[in-house]
């Protein structure tokens, strides 16, 4: 009830200072037969692009009958460069793509993309949402990152790029060559958006009360299990856990397990209404 009364109707700043338009990359895989399932929109985290989902999850979701889309936030993948992008601009990108899909979409955010999705949920009534290894920011996450990967993390604190390491992203099961290939594709998020991970106010409550699933790995070196629990509690549930996997669940060796769990949940999930 309390979350509801935070609903914000007056949005003077958003109205008078609309986010600048930007060209966005959207990849898709649609099932051969339209089965009336809701479209999924995958939102990659900072540094990642639509490619991260195109690797396995897009095709897999389509093979199970879900029209699947993956986007690159501005400044990522093949979307338009946007070094000054803010968290708000990223959320705007997600809402734009979601509203452009033929039917009410399920938003799936990974890493900091989950935080972007949480903000987008306040501006678009998703059918439901899935937060995969959510990076919701705060000093705890920064502390963990500094401990595990000081040289990759420290520059980001001063506005430089954040460089995630193989050990943070993948389990040892993933062949080295593959891990290297993925890491070579990593880009970086806008400086303002990176800083937002430290100080930005919490997302406004989701509109339309969508069911939200949180999942991750207890062996994720970026997102501690305590964070998974905290985020899941915020949405009134407990996280689904996939032991032995790294932060990038969609690219890691056992990528099929989490996506199957998501699709199973969507098949069973009570509709948002």
């Amino acid at each position: 009830m309390s979350a509801r009364s935070e609903l914000r109707i007056m949005r003077g700043r958003e109205w008078s200072r609309p986010v600048r338009a930007a060209r966005r990359e959207v990849l898709s895989a649609t099932p051969e037969l339209e089965e009336g399932r809701p479209p999924l929109l995958f939102v990659p985290g900072f540094g990642h692009g639509a490619w991260a989902f195109a690797e396995h999850w897009l095709g897999h979701a389509a093979s199970r009958g879900f029209p699947a889309y993956a986007m690159s936030l501005r400044g990522h993948g093949a979307s338009e460069p946007a070094p000054e992008a803010s968290l708000r601009a990223y959320a705007h990108d997600v809402v734009q793509v979601a509203a452009g899909l033929p039917r009410q979409a399920v938003l799936v955010g990974h890493g900091a993309g989950a935080l972007v999705v949480a903000h987008a949920l306040a501006r678009y009534p998703a059918r439901s949402a899935v937060l995969v290894a959510p990076v919701f920011g705060g000093w705890g996450v920064l502390g963990a990152a500094l401990r595990r990967n000081p040289s990759g993390t420290l520059p980001a604190v001063f506005g430089g790029p954040l460089r995630l390491s193989r050990g943070q992203l993948f389990s040892r099961e993933l062949p080295d060559a593959e891990a290297r290939r993925h890491i070579a594709r990593l880009g970086r998020a806008g400086r303002r958006a990176q800083w937002a991970l430290l100080g930005e106010p919490e997302a406004e409550p989701a509109v339309g009360a969508p069911p939200v699933l949180v999942l991750g790995s207890p062996d994720d070196r970026v997102v501690p299990t305590s964070t998974l629990n905290r985020v899941a509690r915020r949405y009134g549930s407990a996280p689904l856990l996939f032991p032995g996997m790294g932060h990038d669940l969609m690219l890691d060796a056992r990528w099929a397990e989490p996506i199957d769990a998501i699709l199973d949940w969507l098949e069973k999930e009570p509709a948002a209404h």
Binding site: I9, R11, E14, W15, S16, P18, A21, A22, H92, V95, Q96, A99, G100, R123, Y124, P125, V207, G208
Partner: peptide, 15 residues
């Protein structure tokens, strides 16, 4: 203009 006209949870396309 668009920001004042669209539904608050279904924006008009950027294009």
């Amino acid at each position: 203009s668009k920001p004042f006209t669209q539904f608050p949870d279904f924006p008009m396309p950027d294009s």
